[in-house]
Design a protein around this nucleic acid. Structure first.
Lengths: 334, 334
DNA sequence: TCTGTTTGTTTAAACGTTTAAACAGTTTAA
DNA sequence: TTAAACTGTTTAAACGTTTAAACAAACAGA
């Protein structure tokens, strides 16, 4: 079962391979004889010819594939994003190669090199901590590139993100309006700007009111299962009456602790999550959370990327999308 | 910022491009002058040369990439599998291109063609309903291929799956041992063999005991949100005291219904799930489930695929892995 | 001195496409 | 009648690698 080549089609149709190529690519249609064209199309059909993508790409210097490096593809946030980006790319005739850095900078760098070796036409990146110079270097090499979720304020690179500061600010206002007096904030110990913005927004909001206080606990990403329980225990000890989880993984670890210790929400302590997960469905009470517009983010990222691919001289564009504060996940459709 | 080519390196080192290629690929090491080799390596380093993957692949007729088509990448089962397969491929120096058929056969076919056009070296497929002839055709074309999760008993293709029948059989035995008398089974209305095996195993198990009865409800995949509530309502009406959800999506939809109607588990009705999800963490009582050995499945699939890629004449190998019945997800690590 | 071997390197074809340029034959315009 | 323009098709170079084969120089054995 040999591979069918352009040459085989040409032979069968009794023409040169150039003719087959022209017909297949719809070029010189005004010049080519209708009968010949039809003969070629028939041969293509009969032999079930499929062009070799590698050869095409090599010649055209375009692979019609995009790369997406997620922060952690096992995380719902990433996988849903991947799904949307994949669909968008697909619709435009592009394939998507997905990688997961697992928040490791060396791994991130390796993946980028892999993708570039494979000559992807553009990159969508959820960049891990400390990867700013790396991103800068890519930009200097004029590689079409869009950051998603995370971004570096000192870098002028196209990006899609949400209003982390405002979202947190508003969420805390809501908690205070609900009468919470002492708010605990859980965040990663990180330099990632978007996460710190979440904390800053929360703090600024709480500072406005002098009857409410807060305490902020930093968690090492790789020690979630140890440090989150400790932090929550400490908070509860301090009389915290609301906890703000600034990421979904922190939230899940936190809720697991609360459940294991029979601490009920919102009666004993109330909670607020950044990001939505299916797990909320299984908790007996509504759990309010900040929803990111995943679909819009993915679509916008692909859109910005295509823009750049079409015109490398275009200036960077930072797109900031609005989040929404959702009171409950339950009973939405029943 | 022009791309650095083999030619540029050769020029810089004052040798032919063949020499550079030989040095880079570690060939003819006994012949090549040590100094020349070093000079070439220096030039490679200084110019930061990266080989063009397309050109390499075209020449070598090998792309060092695998394709994985998931049933639904937004489903935890698929995304975790993707993660494992991706890691395994990565370790072997292969990239993974991921697609999601969303259980649609036409989409599945399109994805396969895309992947083959891109000359992937092998495929790992979670095949949707009715795709048996398609798989057969691929096999006839001698395309290295491993089925995962789903398989077709009438086809002799390499596959990795779990003991669906036995898992269900044992799970039902456990429910009966716990005193359940009337068991409801929820399954998709499908011809997918692995799902039907789950039902068959359950039925065979229950039939053994004449004091226990069961009823089985078939759900249309695209109407889950309507049909699952209806089925559960009907079951409860019939006095069912245990429900077996044969897939995680069915389980989640089912639990959402139970929660919205304040029906508690296991006091009012007990449950059993095929597949594990993070959502179980958030339910106040332990929820028993059948666990599939995801990591083993992914690893085995990659292993079988590599085997085939290395020797196309090898016979198909069906690998059936053992599941485990887990009583509770909670308190495992605290 | 001649032949054969070893060492170090280059030449050139190949992988499967795309496409500018060339070509031959026919028609049109002056 | 001759040149210009058009029609339909082919030729051949290019994309960036790999690698078999050829080559040249140095050396060894007779």
């Amino acid at each position: 079962m040999k591979k069918v080549l352009l040459r085989d089609v040409a032979e069968k149709a009794g023409v040169s391979i150039a003719m087959v190529s022209y017909v297949l690519n719809g070029q010189k249609t005004d010049r080519i004889n209708k009968d010949t064209a039809q003969r070629i199309r028939n041969a293509v059909e009969e032999l079930n010819y499929r062009p070799n993508f590698l050869a095409q790409s090599l010649k055209l210097k375009k692979t019609f594939s995009l790369g997406f490096i997620a922060a952690d593809i096992a995380n719902t946030f990433s996988s849903q994003l991947a799904r949307i980006i994949s669909d968008e790319a697909d619709q435009a005739g592009y394939a998507l190669i997905i990688g997961s850095s697992d928040e490791s900078k060396p791994r991130f760098e390796r993946l980028i090199n892999q993708l570039l070796n494979r000559q992807v036409d553009g990159l969508i990146l959820a960049a891990p901590e400390g990867s700013d110079e790396l991103i800068k270097a890519l930009q200097d090499r004029k590689i079409p590139l869009v950051l998603i979720d995370r971004y570096f304020p000192e870098l002028s690179v196209s990006s899609v993100s949400v209003n982390n500061y405002q979202a947190s600010f508003d969420a805390m206002s809501q908690l205070m309006k609900d009468g919470r007096k002492k708010i605990g904030i859980l965040v990663y110990d990180t330099t990632l700007h978007h996460l710190n913005e979440r904390v800053r927004g929360a703090q600024d909001s709480i500072i406005h009111s002098d009857s409410v206080s807060y305490e902020c606990h930093s968690i090492q990403e790789d020690l979630i299962e140890q440090e989150v329980p400790a932090a929550i225990a400490a908070m509860l000890n301090e009389g915290v009456d609301a906890i703000y989880f600034t990421s979904n993984k922190l939230g899940i670890a936190g809720m697991r602790y609360l459940m294991n210790h029979q601490i009920t929400v919102p009666t004993q302590v109330s909670t607020l999550f950044f990001d939505e997960t299916e797990v909320f469905d299984f908790y007996p009470s509504p759990l309010p959370f900040i929803r990111q517009p995943l679909a819009d983010m993915g679509k916008k990222a692909v859109e910005l990327l295509f823009k750049q691919m079409n015109d490398a001289t275009l200036p960077a564009e930072a797109c900031v999308l609005e989040t929404s504060l959702v009171q409950s996940h339950l009973n939405v459709d029943q």
